[in-house]
């Protein structure tokens, strides 16, 4: 069964807003997190470099969450999205 393309909100950190005309939340469509991000990058090409996207790897210093779960431990960019899902991008930060 073909999964449905849905529109998903993506929340961007301060460091990426200059690439999307200052927006903090931006909508993208797709079946997977990767497709949603590619849809947004298609409209804001500078975001690709800002995010450090290269190939299929999630950039080292970036955490991408789907409904609060880090997609590195789901199916990475292939993680399926559904109606009402929320994608949040954050810089990796340490504590201690």
């Amino acid at each position: 069964m073909q999964e449905a393309t849905v529109a998903v909100e993506v929340q961007l950190p301060a460091q990426l807003r200059e690439f999307v005309d200052g927006q903090t939340v931006i909508e993208g469509t797709g079946v997977t997190v990767g497709e949603v991000l590619r849809d947004i990058v298609g409209r804001y090409p500078a975001l690709e470099e800002g995010l450090g996207l290269k190939g299929d790897d999630i950039p080292k210093y970036v955490n991408i969450y789907l409904d609060d779960e880090d997609i590195r431990y789901l199916d990475k960019f292939e993680t399926s999205v559904s109606n009402g899902s929320q994608v949040v991008i954050m810089p990796a930060v340490a504590g201690g």
Binding site: P13, A14, G50, K60, A92, V93
Partner: peptide, 21 residues
């Protein structure tokens, strides 16, 4: 479990300023 870091670290210039211990 980790805390949301987004708004707390606005002083970082780019995502390359992130840090993985």
């Amino acid at each position: 479990a980790e805390p949301p870091t987004g708004e707390l670290v606005q002083g970082l210039r780019s995502l390359d300023d992130g840090y993985i211990p």
